[in-house]
Write a protein that binds this DNA or RNA. Structure first.
Lengths: 229, 229
DNA sequence: ATAAAATTTTAACGGTCGTTAAAAACCGCT
DNA sequence: AGCGGTTTTTAACGACCGTTAAAATTTTAT
């Protein structure tokens, strides 16, 4: 079943594998995918290698054949999902410069929600592991979560023509992203407070309205260059 | 050491104990206090009965003598801390009606921060357990976390003379409390993003500035009765 | 076809978990 | 002093955890 090509002329014995075509990288991918699923349902400490193995349809020690430790697997998962989220975040700003604040923000939020609906796991993983034990027991790859936030702030400052002091922009983006991660990463909590279903259009509508209500005045303010208090 | 009173006339043998004076209720209290400490450092699943026993200076099975299960202990902890937080939240509004939005909000935040510094554990516990596994494995006492949010929204609506539509008030308080719980309950995360220490005056200053920046415009708006979008 | 190598499964280790049962210690009382 | 009841400790159970080692299987190369 596996593709093996011999060079016609030389008969070289080196198998030419397409990247990701051999069994090895396939199960490795399956493991990462299963891990993403499990880590989006349980925080790092509560998720277990055995859950991930079951989700991937393999025996759990096989995971240690591909990843030395649970921590290493989690770090790869974090790297993957934070990168996906970061790249997506950049794309949501495309073409927004030409628009006025209202429609710009609306479009941004629509793109954001569209992504969150199609790929809920990254946000869940981030939200689940963001608040963690202080002091000794730091979660593996925790720095990646922090740098994600920092990078998203930078993206925001580069992508929007805000004129206010850097302080205000930092506050705006931090507040905005904090709310976003909570509402979309911990939707089950906030939705049920509001008496709604986490994935219902009503809830998303509320989130959009709520975040617009919160951010739009400040956005206008900063676009005018009056970002101070 | 135990206070026992016999009714002079009948000689009844029922012991009349002052609440909290006998050894039993003392260790019970110690257990709850130790549990609050541990549950403020680790989320429900990661905290263990053994940690709590060690923190309380007792052998861990003694906990099961006072509480049938870990879940029951956690529920009592949640009931305690959410109530403390709820009552405190009410007190922060006292005398604010007479003030203009700026000084009112400033005073409210000062009271809030003062509380958070003196009693960091309730906010930590709330923040640590708010985002949790969806579906099957719900955390014991989770409903209490939700009702806390609902009750704080009601408090806000009663305590402030806001004129806007109920929707806007709900959005404002939800956003506000969400930010508060994150910034003060998960300070280690946000502070280090900003390059500050979680308990430093600088960080608290940033939080105050940031939340004022976010909320003040909307507050003015709602006090004028123009809360719609 | 056969040997070598890579992949997967099986079994098991030491450890921590929540909980239970029995023994031990402590208490107030006659 | 000795008894009855309460509180605390000790020991242990079964379950799950991450990880390791070896056996079994499958794939690759000659």
């Amino acid at each position: 079943m596996k593709k093996v090509e011999k060079t016609k002329i030389t008969g070289k014995k080196t198998a030419v594998k397409k990247a990701g075509s051999c069994r090895k990288t396939e199960t490795r991918k399956a493991i990462v995918e299963a891990a993403i699923k499990v880590f989006s349902d349980y925080p790092y400490d509560s998720a277990s290698i055995r859950m991930i193995g079951k989700e991937a349809g393999i025996e759990h020690p096989l995971i240690n054949y591909y990843f030395p430790t649970k921590a290493a697997l989690f770090e790869e998962v974090l790297e993957t999902v934070t990168d996906v989220y970061y790249q997506a975040n950049i794309s949501w700003f495309e073409g927004l410069e030409a628009l006025d604040p209202e429609t710009g923000l609306s479009l941004y939020l629509d793109r954001f929600f569209d992504f969150a609906l199609k790929h809920p796991k990254p946000l869940r993983i981030i939200a689940l592991n963001l608040v963690q034990a202080k002091g000794q027991d730091i979660i593996p790859g925790y720095l990646r979560l922090q740098s994600l936030f920092t990078k998203m702030t930078r993206t925001f400052m580069i992508a929007t023509p805000l004129q206010g002091p850097q302080n205000s922009i930092e506050m705006l983006t931090t507040n905005f992203n904090t709310l976003a991660i909570n509402y979309l990463g911990a939707g089950a909590y906030y939705a049920s407070i509001l008496g709604l279903a986490p994935d219902s259009p009503e809830y998303l509508k509320w989130v959009k309205k709520s975040m617009t209500f919160m951010v739009l005045p400040l956005l206008k303010q900063l676009l005018d260059g009056r970002g101070d208090l």
